[in-house]
Amino acid sequence: MDATQTAHFRDRLLAQQRTLLAQIADQRGGVMGRAEAAAAHFGHPEDSRAQLATERELEFALDEHETSHLSAIDAALTRIASGSYGQCTDCGTDIATNRLEVAPEASRCLTCQDSAEHHEHHG
């Protein structure tokens, strides 16, 4: 992969990273704000606790997904810095450029990704 391609993907990854960080910041302010509003609205301790629990579960689920996506982006940026970006971390072959266009944080070629997902679901 040449420097122009690498710069293109680095810019895309950095943009995704900024967007995710902004979403997380919005949710941190927004989720608790909605929970507090719900607690005030219901006025019943048992209802507000249930509402708060639901809001927190939603926040944790979103955080987990976004945190794993941020980790994948960070890892891809590290691979760019080390010169190994675009190579499958499992088998070492080049990852198809069209796959990187769709998922610039991808660390595996499609064959290795399918294999990894198969093991996760059936392991």
Rank of each mutant, 00 (worst) to 15 (best):
A3S: 15
H69A: 10
G83W: 01
R108W: 02
R34W: 08
G43D: 14
F42W: 09
H69E: 11
H65K: 14
T111F: 02
A3C: 11
P45Y: 05
H119A: 14
A61H: 05
A39K: 03
F42N: 12
R99L: 08
D26T: 03
A37D: 15
G92F: 07
Q16I: 00
L52G: 09
P104W: 01
A3W: 09
T54P: 00
R99M: 09
A116M: 13
L70P: 01
R18M: 08
I80E: 03
F9M: 04
Y85K: 02
T97K: 11
E55W: 01
L58I: 07
M32R: 09
D2Q: 14
R12N: 04
P104Y: 01
I24G: 02
T19S: 15
R108Q: 12
I80T: 03
S48C: 09
E117A: 06
D74W: 02
G123D: 01
L58R: 12
T67L: 10
T89A: 13
E66T: 09
H8P: 03
R28N: 09
T6V: 15
I24T: 05
R12S: 06
V102S: 11
D90E: 15
C88W: 00
T97H: 07
D47M: 10
A106L: 00
G29H: 12
Q5C: 02
R12K: 02
A81S: 11
T111H: 12
A39S: 15
T19I: 12
A53L: 10
I95T: 04
L62S: 13
H44W: 06
R108S: 04
H118T: 13
Q113M: 05
L62W: 11
A103K: 13
R10W: 04
R10A: 11
A72N: 11
V102T: 09
S107D: 09
P104D: 04
R12Q: 09
G43V: 04
Y85W: 11
S115H: 13
H8M: 14
L52R: 03
P104S: 00
T93D: 14
D26L: 06
C109I: 07
A37G: 12
H8T: 05
P104A: 03
A53Y: 03
Q87A: 14
L21Y: 07
S107M: 05
H69G: 02
L21R: 15
R99A: 10
